[in-house]
Design a protein around this nucleic acid. Structure first.
Length: 487
RNA sequence: GCCCCCAUCGUCCAGCGGUCUAGGACGCCGGCCUUUCACGCCGGUAACACGGGUUCGAAUCCCGUUGGGGGUACCA
C-alpha cells in the first residue's frame, strides 16, 4: 500500500515554524516513498478559524516550496477537505459507534464530572472519567428520543491498554486507567478534534501520522476510534517540540514564531527549509547544507531525533548567509530588491537599479539576511544620515579634516570616475600625507555612507557618482570645521 | 496531583557493547587576510546528568534518582 500522509493545520493563526517543520517532515517522507500528501483543514473551531489564516498557511507552504497532492485548492476523491463541511459524516460515525456499543450518550452533569476529578486528585489517582454515570442503553435512548441533548462519549474498554509502535520512539503503551471516556460529539452536535481528526485519517486512508509530540497522549484515543471504525490503523510518529532558549515550547515570547515573520525579515525559504530539516533530523553526513533532493533521498523517520530542539536563530542566520552567497548575482539582485526599496521607502529608478546591481555582489558577500542589504546600500539612493556613533569614533582623529580636504582635491581631478581611478587617486593622496589606508579611508567612508560599516569604499564611490561624493565630503568637512561635530 | 516523552559540548546533530584519549556544525575565543564590516582560511574552548546493575568490556542495554518538556476540557 502506498504511503499517504497528511497536513491538517488549524487556521487559527499564522503558519508557525514548528508547524512548518512538521509539514516538511511529512512532505519529505511522502516524497521519499513516492507517496501522497493530503492537505486538509481542521477548522472545527469556528470561533477562531479564519480564511486569512488559511491563506497565510497556504502561502507559507508555497514559500517553503512544499506542494501537496490532494486537499485544499487541489481537490481530490474525498471532495471536501475542510472539517467544517464534513460535520454530517462525523455525526454519522458517532451514531454508528453508539449503535455498535462502542460509544454512548452521556448524561453526567458537569458538577458530577468536576467532583470526580477533585476526588481523584485528592486520592492521587488519574482524574479520568471512567463512564461510571453511563446509563443503560434503553434509558439513554429514551432520553435522547425525548429530545434531551447529550454528548456522545467513547466507551474505553476497561481494563485494557493501547499499545503501538511509534516510528520515532518505539513501543509505547497506555493503560486505559489513564484514558477517559472522551467526548466524540458535543451535545450541540459538533465533533471534537479527536473524532474529526480520526475520521478524516480513516476516510483519507492515511498510512502515517507524523505530528508533534504534544499529541502523543491523545494517540490512544485516535487509535481506539480507528479500530472501532474497523480501519487498519496508521503508523504514528511523534516529533519532539521546538523550544525557545529557555527550553519551553516555542512561542511568541521567544520572538518571531511565524514563518511569515522570517520571510519579512530577510530569511530565504531554502535556508529556512534546510535549517528546519536539520533541526531534529540528521541526513547522516557531516555536511549540513543539504539540497532538497538529498533530503528527499535520505529522509528516514528512524533517524529523527527524540530530543526537543532549541530553535537557534544564530545558526539559521549563518545558514541563510550561506544560501545568500550561493545565489547568482542576478538572483541576488532580484530577491533583495524588495528589501532595498523598503529601506529606501520608494521604488528604485532604472538608473538606480544599475547602481545597485554594481555594488550588489559586494553586499551579497557579507549579508546574513536580506534586510541587511537595504541598510548597506541605502546611502546610494537617499540623503546620507550620519550615524552619530560612527562620526564620533572616526572624525575625532586629528587627521580627519586634512584627509577629507585632500580627498576632495584628489577626487575632483580623477579623469575617469571608476573604481580603479578612484582608488589610485585616494591612495596617492593618503601616501602624500603619510597616512595609512586603514586610518585614512574611514573619515571618507563616514562622510559618504554615513557609517563606519559599509560596502568597500572605492566601489561605493564609483556607484554614488562624483558629484554626490564630493558634495558629501565637503559637507562633512564643513561640519568638522564648524567644530560642533554633529548637530 | 495524575499520565506520557526526553536526557552526549552553550545550541543542533553523529555515536546504535570494544575502533571514544567521544566526531561534525553553529556560537564563542585567538590568528591570518584586509580600506571598515563581513566573507574566507587556520587553530582553540567545550559534553556522555547522577546512582545502581548486566557484561570480560558501557556514552551505548536494564532499573532508579534528579532535571527538563508535554498532556491532563463538551480547545485543537
Amino acid at each position: 500500500m502506498s504511503v499517504r500522509v497528511r497536513f491538517p493545520p488549524s487556521p487559527t493563526g499564522h503558519l508557525h515554524v514548528g508547524t512548518g517543520r512538521t509539514v516538511l517532515y511529512n512532505w519529505l517522507f511522502a516524497r521519499h516513498h513516492g507517496g501522497v500528501m493530503v492537505f486538509r483543514v481542521d477548522d472545527t473551531d469556528a470561533e477562531r478559524s479564519t480564511e486569512e489564516f488559511l491563506d497565510d498557511i497556504i502561502e507559507g507552504l508555497r514559500w517553503l516550496g512544499l506542494d501537496w497532492d490532494e486537499g485544499i485548492v487541489t481537490g481530490g476523491p474525498v471532495g471536501e477537505y475542510r472539517q467544517s463541511r464534513r460535520l454530517a459524516r462525523y455525526r454519522e460515525v458517532a451514531r454508528e459507534l453508539v449503535a455498535a456499543g462502542r460509544a454512548y450518550y452521556d448524561f453526567a452533569t458537569p458538577g458530577q464530572l468536576e467532583a470526580l476529578r477533585a476526588e481523584a486528585a485528592a486520592a492521587g489517582r488519574s482524574p479520568v472519567y471512567d463512564g461510571r454515570f453511563r446509563l443503560p442503553d434503553h434509558e439513554a435512548a429514551a432520553r435522547v428520543a425525548a429530545g434531551e441533548a447529550a454528548p456522545i462519549r467513547f466507551a474505553v474498554p476497561r481494563p485494557g491498554e493501547t499499545v503501538f509502535t511509534d516510528a520515532i520512539r518505539g513501543e509505547l503503551r497506555f493503560d486505559h486507567a489513564n484514558v477517559d471516556d472522551f467526548v466524540l460529539l458535543r451535545s450541540d452536535g459538533t465533533p471534537t478534534y479527536h473524532l474529526a481528526s480520526s475520521v478524516d485519517d480513516v476516510d483519507h486512508a492515511i498510512t502515517h501520522v507524523i505530528r508533534g509530540e504534544d499529541l502523543l497522549p491523545s494517540t490512544p484515543k485516535h487509535i481506539l476510534i480507528s479500530r472501532a471504525m474497523g480501519a487498519a490503523e496508521a503508523v504514528y510518529a511523534h516529533l519532539s517540540l521546538l523550544t525557545g532558549p529557555d527550553g519551553a515550547k516555542l512561542s511568541k515570547r521567544h520572538g518571531a514564531t511565524s514563518l511569515r515573520a522570517y520571510r519579512d525579515e530577510g530569511i530565504l525559504p531554502e535556508a529556512m527549509r534546510n535549517y528546519l530539516a536539520i533541526l531534529g533530523w540528521s541526513p547522516g553526513m557531516d555536511e549540513e547544507i543539504v539540497s532538497l533532493e538529498t533530503m528527499v533521498g535520505r529522509f528516514d523517520l528512524g533517524a529523527v531525533s527524540r530530543n526537543p530542539a532549541v530553535f537557534d536563530l544564530a545558526k539559521l542566520e549563518w545558514m541563510n548567509g550561506v544560501y545568500i552567497r550561493a545565489l547568482s548575482p542576478d538572483e541576488f539582485v532580484a530577491r533583495s530588491l524588495p528589501f532595498v526599496e523598503a529601506a529606501v521607502g520608494r521604488p528604485l529608478q532604472p538608473a538606480e537599479h544599475a547602481a545597485f546591481a554594481s555594488v550588489a555582489p559586494l553586499v551579497q558577500e557579507r549579508a546574513r539576511r536580506l534586510t541587511e542589504v537595504g541598510a548597506q546600500v541605502r546611502f546610494l539612493f537617499s540623503e546620507v544620515e550620519i550615524d552619530p556613533e560612527s562620526w564620533d569614533a572616526v572624525m575625532a582623529a586629528p587627521e580627519s579634516s586634512a584627509v577629507l580636504e585632500a580627498s576632495v582635491t584628489a577626487l575632483a581631478s580623477v579623469a575617469d570616475w571608476d573604481e580603479g581611478s578612484i582608488e589610485a587617486a585616494l591612495r596617492a593622496a593618503l601616501a602624500a600625507g603619510g597616512i595609512s589606508a586603514r586610518k585614512g579611508l574611514q573619515p571618507i567612508r563616514v562622510a559618504v555612507t554615513g557609517s563606519r560599516v559599509s560596502p568597500p569604499l572605492f566601489e561605493s564611490l564609483a556607484a554614488l557618482g562624483r558629484e554626490r561624493t564630493l558634495e558629501r565630503i565637503r559637507s562633512a568637512t564643513g561640519r568638522l570645521g564648524a567644530g560642533s561635530g554633529l548637530q
